[in-house]
């Protein structure tokens, strides 16, 4: 499963990758901003996207990703727990909204569930 991981923090990308490895999500493309992520989406097939909700243009990026792939799971990681933000994320096409800070177990569980969902659809 090819994953696109979008976060402007190299540290956070490292933490997330360490959580992904035991899930055998080892085919990972990293992007640090929305333009780089869109270029990655256009360059290759992506099966799962993990997007930092605090990124500039995060919701626009979700819409772009959704426009390119209607069924790809999109996981948003965000510290904002406001109902408006969560509603907007879902409306843009986010599959799973994970609140920061998260434990490795919690993120792992969310990823496991969206992978299961994607696999059973395929």
């Amino acid at each position: 499963m090819r994953t696109l991981l979008v976060d402007d923090s190299r540290t956070m990308r490292g933490i997330i990758r360490s959580i992904m490895t035991p899930l055998r999500l080892d085919e990972v493309e990293e992007a640090e901003d929305a333009p780089e992520a869109i270029a990655a989406l256009d360059a290759t097939t992506t099966d799962l996207a993990i997007i930092d909700g605090g990124l500039d243009g995060a919701l626009d990026l979700v819409r772009e990703a959704r426009r390119r792939n209607a069924h790809m799971p999109i996981v948003m990681l965000c510290a904002d727990t406001g109902a408006d933000r969560i509603r907007a994320a879902r409306a843009a096409g986010v599959t799973r909204y994970v609140v920061k800070p998260f434990t490795p177990d919690i993120l792992s569980q969310h990823l496991d569930e969206v992978i299961d969902g994607a696999t059973s659809r395929a």
């Binding site: 923090s9 190299r10 540290t11 605090g54 510290a79 920061k100 800070p101």
Partner: peptide, 19 residues
Amino acid sequence: PSFDDAIAEIADTIVAGAR
């Protein structure tokens, strides 16, 4: 730079969690 990135990310998550 990697140290700056990590400090900034941790602090940013702390402040975002207390918005």
